[in-house]
Amino acid sequence: MSHSTQQGFTLIEWLIAIVIGLFLTAGIGSFLVASQRTTEATYHSEQMMDSGRIATHLITRDLKMVGFFGEYTGKPMVRGAGVTLVTSDIPSANDCLTDWVGATPEGSFPSAGGRFSPLFVGQVSNSNSLSGQYACVSSRSNLVLDSDVIGIKRVIGSPKLSAADLNSKRYYFAANSAQAELFTSSDPWPSEADMPGRQVWEYQHFVYYLDVSAQSGLPVLRKLYLHNDSGMQAINGPLVEGIERMRLLLGVDTDTSVDGVINEFIAASNVTPLQWSEGRVIGAKLYLLVRSLTEDQNYTNNNSYELGDVAVAAANDHYRRTLFESVIFFRNMVY
């Protein structure tokens, strides 16, 4: 009878197998960790890109059309000299006012004093204010310091064909090339006989600003709009979350003779009254600093971001950030 012999692994073979297994396990573990970090970084990047694109689109769309008032081109935006206010004025406590020194404060509607600003840009100071301007915004407690507030006046949408198309919560602007009226759905519809060739548009005053949400703790982009019942009213909820800083520089034609070419981008506070009155403000450059909504513990941000003339340093935290920049040319500015 023959006997077969069985042989197992030797100790050395076992040790070699264990070492190889440890190397494979370590490699797989490293791959999984790296994959998780890459996935997390990709998630944050995609979220920031989405937030930045949406916020940039919303603001630049309105900036491109700032000062657009339909057919009205023949006279200045002065109440009683081209523009007739058919509806009632908005109480100052419910409006967004620009308080010009030596002149009547200017609200959403053209004033009789001859000053009309289709565009307002102010920077929130350390005192959480706009130096007395736009109290509709500066009365809020969670504004993002050193960020800009942007006010835009224009008509929106498509021309209305009849009184049946009007919304009772909105204001409207009827105009031909020589005259204009501001009215609501409860006011008489302007007739073709009284205003030949007129078009009727919705009149709006939009205000963009940043604050920190009391609910989420995130910096968010918000918007006010003109409402017939309550004056300037905030849209419910934030427009976009994660917008950490907003800066708008104005493009100015500084040549001796106005040639319609931007020579430099400067802060709104540095634009002179003469440059405004001569129509030299013809564009803008928008900067948005976008922050991830959640922290990435595998990343420390110690970068500095240049928003035109302002540098914003990250606080060595774990939030990722991306800077968006867009150049806008004004098509319809009326001074």
Rank of each mutant, 00 (worst) to 15 (best):
R140C: 09
F120T: 14
D165I: 13
S117I: 13
V86Q: 06
I12R: 07
K64S: 11
W14E: 14
I156L: 10
G279C: 06
D309S: 12
I152Q: 02
L11T: 13
Y203E: 08
N303T: 07
I20A: 09
I12S: 09
L293A: 05
Q133A: 02
G151P: 00
W189T: 11
G308Y: 08
I235V: 14
A164M: 09
P196R: 01
H318D: 05
P105H: 10
P76I: 01
S158K: 11
P190Q: 06
V240N: 04
A214I: 12
H57R: 14
K169C: 08
V78E: 09
A135W: 12
L286W: 05
I243E: 00
I262M: 10
L210M: 04
A214S: 11
R280H: 01
G217A: 00
E278Q: 10
T38L: 15
G29Q: 04
Y43H: 14
S269T: 14
T87N: 08
Q36N: 15
K285R: 15
T56G: 03
L15S: 08
N270D: 06
R291M: 07
G27F: 01
L286K: 11
L97N: 05
I262F: 06
R198F: 13
N176T: 10
D148P: 09
H44I: 15
N263S: 05
H3M: 15
V121Y: 00
L226C: 04
L32R: 05
I152R: 01
S186L: 07
A81F: 13
G8D: 04
V290W: 04
T300E: 14
S292W: 03
D253P: 01
Q47A: 14
N316S: 10
L288F: 10
V33W: 06
Q47M: 12
N303P: 01
Q7G: 14
A234Q: 12
T5G: 14
T300I: 15
S326C: 06
M77K: 03
L293D: 04
E40S: 15
R115N: 07
A193G: 04
F120Q: 12
G74E: 00
F9G: 14
S45T: 13
R37L: 15
R245P: 03
T294Y: 11
L226D: 02
Y319D: 05
T56P: 09
V252A: 00
G114Y: 01
A174V: 02
F120P: 00
G132V: 01
S269L: 03
S162H: 01
T104W: 09
R222C: 02
A17D: 07
G122F: 11
F9S: 15
K223V: 07
R61W: 05
L250H: 04
S2T: 14
Y299N: 01
N270S: 13
S138N: 09
V212C: 06
E264D: 13
Q123E: 15
